[in-house]
Design a binder for these strands. Structure first.
Length: 281
DNA sequence: TTGAGTGTTGTCGA
DNA sequence: ATCGACAACACTCA
């Protein structure tokens, strides 16, 4: 369930449900998902207390007594907390038991999700090495920096926004939404986009992600029993998954095409390409 | 039945 | 530097 609003929703759920609990058992059923080593992970967590649950971009950060665990949900990762017996499920990969008898279970059908164990002092370096951009907030996400980066780049705007370096947190759903709001064609080169639209885009990114967090995120496909799956923002989406549906602004049917390997939704009337001769297939 | 598509990211080679 | 292809994996839909 991964774009930033969904991850933030999971963070809040985890903070409420496991903060302050002491870990008494750990089992990793799919060792490859713990990038820093499953055995060390299982041993190190024992006896530690969950001090807080944070987030950076789409990464969850579980702060324990002596270590931190960075958890990335990728495409379909979820957490469930069971008070008693944990039902058997082939997609349950990590089990963290607490001293009150509850168990936090990590579920991931596609097994793309990852966990990493490290010291808190290593966190900054971790995100710097991944070139994760600023959080999409009024204070952190600077318009002048954003404009400068886009202005000097010929990269295609949509994949550029997805690579997390300009701003953290956008995924394939929200990037289509914010480009529609800013009336930018997803396939346009960044350096052709005028300053005014970039300013609108920056505010749209902040507003949409905040609004989605407030709605509990989006639940596109139906999920059950997952922390943070009770989102309703999917009801507010304007273009994602709306092929053939009239554009909320102009009534032109929304179209979909593939861009950099990703399904891309846009309004051919509101978001014309700035490139001469590029007829939005 | 087969192939395409799915909320992500990292690597590799041109 | 940048971009596309492909990889990790499982499931749904046409």
């Amino acid at each position: 369930m991964p774009e930033l609003p969904e991850v933030e929703n999971v963070r809040r759920g985890l903070e409420r449900l496991v903060k302050g609990k002491k870990i008494t058992s750990v089992e990793v059923a799919y060792p490859r998902m713990v990038l820093t080593g499953a055995e060390e992970f299982e041993q190190a967590l024992l006896g530690q207390v969950v001090e807080s649950v944070g987030r950076r971009g789409k990464y969850l950060i579980l702060k324990l007594s002596n270590d931190v665990v960075i958890s990335h949900l990728r495409m379909e990762g979820k957490y469930n907390l069971y008070q008693g017996e944990v039902p058997s499920n082939k997609h349950y990969h990590v089990f963290i038991g607490f001293d009150d008898g509850s168990t936090l279970v990590y579920q991931d059908v596609r097994k793309f999700g990852t966990m990493e164990l490290m010291k808190e002092q290593a966190l900054d370096g971790y995100f710097i090495s991944k070139k994760i951009g600023p959080e999409p907030t009024q204070t952190d996400f600077d318009l002048a920096d954003f404009y400068q980066s886009l202005h000097k780049s010929k990269k295609i705007i949509k994949p550029y926004l997805l690579d997390q370096t300009l701003v953290a947190g956008l995924g394939n759903i929200y990037v289509d939404e914010v480009l529609w709001l800013a009336k930018i064609f997803p396939g346009d080169p960044a350096n052709l986009i005028p300053y005014e639209k970039i300013a609108v885009l920056r505010d749209a990114i902040i507003d949409v992600l905040e609004d989605s967090i407030a709605s509990g995120g989006s639940s596109i496909r139906t999920y059950k029993n997952a922390l943070g799956d009770k989102g309703s923002y999917q009801d507010k989406l304007r273009v994602y998954g709306k092929v053939g549906v009239p554009c909320p602004r102009c009534g032109t049917p929304i179209e979909k095409f593939k861009l950099s390997g990703r399904g891309t939704h846009f309004c051919p009337y509101c978001q014309p390409s700035l490139k001469e001769g590029d007829l939005n297939d």
